[in-house]
């Protein structure tokens, strides 16, 4: 498996770096230049996060703006033993999810047809076969990455968001369940179904390689 390490993920929180402490103190003091530094350093990765969640450029940019405003307003609550990037990531995820919630609720298809099917004796109806290329090789090609992205985007939104928050942003299950207002059991089922559905969408391409 690939080692995944996101500066903006919710992985164990490391203490603020010395240079961050100074920045936080200046932010708390209302230093205009400090806010500009915060924006310059964090806008790009936060935009990547909100783009992944919202899949809409305008909404993603709005969410980033709102995240910075929220961060500046609540900088007094920032705990110095945390990392600024982790804290900003959490705020940006919240802002993006708020936008998702106010989107008009669309009826979405379930993913049943994309789940594996079984015979009465419990065996798979269609045998699975291994994929042709390694993940590393697939990721090297822009066309293949676009295909994976397209397949993720084809998932019904509630499944796509679970996949993004758990497998990409790597937020802990309790946090995701709370943010999405679902039970932890429901989240677990949804994540497993999302992965299986995505596997099914990728399968015909990956069997023969893209």
């Amino acid at each position: 498996m690939l080692e995944t390490r996101y500066a903006y993920s919710m992985q164990p929180v490391a203490a603020a770096r010395p240079d961050e402490r100074g920045l936080v103190e200046r932010l708390r003091a209302g230093d205009e230049r400090a806010f500009e530094e915060l924006v310059d350093h964090h806008a790009a990765p936060l935009l990547a996060v909100t783009r992944r969640i919202l899949r809409d450029e305008e909404e993603a940019r709005d969410a980033v703006q709102e995240a910075f405003v929220a961060a500046f307003r609540s900088i007094g609550d920032f705990q110095i033993e945390s990392r600024l990037s982790t804290w900003m990531h959490r705020i940006a995820v919240n802002c993006a999810l708020m936008k998702l919630r106010v989107r008009e609720r669309r009826r979405e298809k379930d993913v049943d047809e994309l789940l594996p099917h079984f015979q009465a004796d419990g065996h798979q109806q269609q045998s699975s076969v291994g994929w042709k290329e390694s993940v590393e090789d697939v990721l090297q090609r822009e066309q293949s990455r676009a295909l994976v992205r397209e397949c993720i985007d084809r998932l019904p939104e509630s499944y796509r968001v679970v996949l993004v928050l758990r497998d990409i942003e790597q937020l802990p299950p309790d946090v995701v369940a709370e943010k999405l207002q679902i039970t932890r059991d429901n989240l677990k089922v949804k994540l497993h179904r999302a992965r299986q559905a995505l596997r099914t969408l990728l399968d015909p391409h990956m069997r023969g390689a893209t």
């Binding site: 697939v138 990721l139 996949l163």
Partner: peptide, 10 residues
């Protein structure tokens, strides 16, 4: 591999 691809693409 699906999980790895999702993370890898991001």
């Amino acid at each position: 591999e699906t999980i790895d691809l999702v993370r890898g693409v991001a």
